[in-house]
Design a protein around this nucleic acid. Structure first.
Length: 471
RNA sequence: GGCGCCGUGGCCAAGUGGUAAGGCGGCAGACUGCAAAUCUGCUAUUCGUCGGUUCGAUUCCGACCGGCGCCUCCA
């Protein structure tokens, strides 16, 4: 199947054809979490977008080498470690564990590597050295090393911001470091007392210190993926300054293009505003689990809006996703159990795959892929109602569903059944069957109602009665 | 102040210079002892407002109104 894959590139502000430079493996770097606090759903929206991207890249036929960094040394981590009398590692280790648990809950595929900033200090120092050698970085009086943006002419090409002036209304930097130029950013920060105390200081040619935030990503990306990446992704708020600075550092050191494509996911909002820790309106994966919001529902919710569009988290939207995903789950089971199909089923399957691929390859149009899936489910259900004995049509339908769901991954998980429950339910259902046989529907309905009250759905099918635990 | 995004039915949300996908919800019908699931039909003469370009605009341009984001903590 030919189909060109197209992706929006922040560098050019256009949707462009994309393919990996070597034609086979996409080398992508995705900015990961700063691990001082469990990541919130806003962070996960971005990670979900990246999960979608890597799955679509594979659907297109490429392999993927994804790196997601874990920023395990930074101001907030040091602050927290200091407050609690811990080392930064003692702060970050448990948070990293939570990150992976949340990641798995949301069915976000494991990236090929999760480098920790603290494990790449030598590479970072080498990068700073290269920049100093090339004359685009300097050590200031405070001992820190800064990148001199006016010695890097293309600075600003990604964000297209006029960095010359800081206007009224802009947040003003309260920098405690001394720099030549207000826009220069720290590559290497001279160690302070609390850095030493929390294990956040390393030896370097410029004295004890620690890496600047931007430096971490450049060093890890280039160490693990080479000097020119195919793709670099993150949240839209990283465009400036983080990604702009990464470009400056990396290209300033190598003279080569750092990343061919830059992709940014839009924000997740809560109550109409950005979800951010400092605004105190964050929701986490833990909140979702408490409210029995399945991963499938979250994915459906997130993928129902294009990744470059803001998305507002609301109870109504989540509820809608939960219901939609229930229909998908019912259909998935029905597909497994069906014996045969019809020619029209096969035709619907072909259309679904074609539409979903076209949508996904067109700048990750997940909402449209979801629509293709739903349209397929409607058509397939109608055909299945009609019966049919065509085995190959059935297989084609299963393949189509597996292919699309292999990207979206929106079938709700089965609710686990605790020991002993099955026997108890079966016993009650036997009683109910007897009641129905003697047409004592009041008794039969009472049993069904009591089971439903504890989260057991009872359905009478032509083939017999089936029960499922729904929560 | 600079830069940028958005405004589509009750809710969520695609999309296109040629006459509005899909989901949720709701209503009616089929099926069922009744339900559930599923199916069928209905649910925006209209895409923030006002102008302009055009044979034709929701889609292009301009203004305005409303919401949001970035301008060195930030997914």
């Amino acid at each position: 199947m030919p189909s060109e894959f197209r992706l929006y590139n922040t560098l050019t502000r256009q949707v462009e054809p994309f393919a990996p430079a070597d034609g086979a493996c996409v080398r992508m770097y995705t900015c990961g979490p700063t691990v001082y606090n469990p990541a919130h759903l806003g962070n996960f929206r971005t990670f979900l977008f990246e999960d979608l991207l890597r799955r679509v890249l594979r659907l297109r036929g490429w392999s993927v080498n994804q790196v997601m960094n874990l920023t395990d040394v930074d101001d907030k981590i040091i602050k927290r470690a200091n407050e609690r009398g811990l080392t930064i590692t003692q702060v970050t280790n448990p948070v990293i564990e939570i990150f992976h648990r949340d990641r798995e809950y949301l069915r976000i595929e494991r990236a090929e590597s999760y480098p920790r900033a603290t494990e790449f200090i030598p590479q970072m120092i080498a990068l700073v050295q290269a920049l100093v050698d090339r004359g685009v970085a300097y050590q200031a009086e405070d001992g820190s090393v800064y990148f001199a943006i006016d010695r890097f002419p293309s600075y600003g090409k990604l964000s297209r911001l006029d960095t010359r002036e800081v206007r009224p209304g802009a947040r003003v930097s309260q920098d405690e470091y001394s720099k030549e130029n207000a826009q220069d950013f720290a590559l290497w920060k001279a160690a302070k007392e609390e850095d030493e105390r929390t294990g956040a200081a390393w030896d370097s040619p410029w004295g004890r210190g620690r890496p600047g935030w931007h430096l971490e990503c450049s060093a890890m990306a280039m160490s693990l993926l080479g000097e020119t990446l195919d793709l670099h992704c993150g949240g839209i708020d990283l465009i400036f300054p983080h990604h702009e600075d990464e470009i400056a550092q990396s290209e300033g050191a190598t003279g080569k293009q750092f990343s061919r494509f830059w992709c940014h996911g839009a924000f997740l909002l809560t109550d109409g505003t950005k979800m951010a820790k400092r605004l105190g309106n964050v929701h986490t994966v833990a909140d979702l689990r408490e409210n029995a919001v399945s991963a499938a529902a979250v994915r459906h919710f997130v993928f129902s809006t294009h990744y470059r569009q803001e998305l507002n988290l609301s109870a109504d939207a989540l509820e809608g996703a939960l219901n939609a995903v229930r229909r998908i789950g019912t259909f998935a089971r029905r597909l497994e159990e069906a014996r045969g199909g019809t020619p029209a089923l096969a035709e619907a399957a072909r259309i679904a795959v074609e539409s979903a691929r076209a949508a996904l390859f067109d700048d990750l149009n997940a909402p449209e892929a979801l629509a293709a899936l739903h349209t397929f489910i409607g058509a397939a259900n109608a055909e299945l109602d009609r019966g049919g004995t065509d085995e190959s049509a059935m297989q084609e339908a299963r393949r189509a569903f597996a292919l699309i769901d292999g990207v979206l991954d929106v079938v709700p998980e089965e609710v686990s059944v605790e020991a002993g429950l099955a026997e108890r339910v079966e016993a009650l259902l036997a009683e109910r069957k007897a009641a129905r046989a003697r047409r004592d529907f009041a008794a039969a309905d009472a049993i069904r109602k009591s089971l439903e009250a504890e989260g057991i759905a009872v359905e009478d099918l032509p083939t017999g009665t089936r029960w499922t635990k729904v929560r």
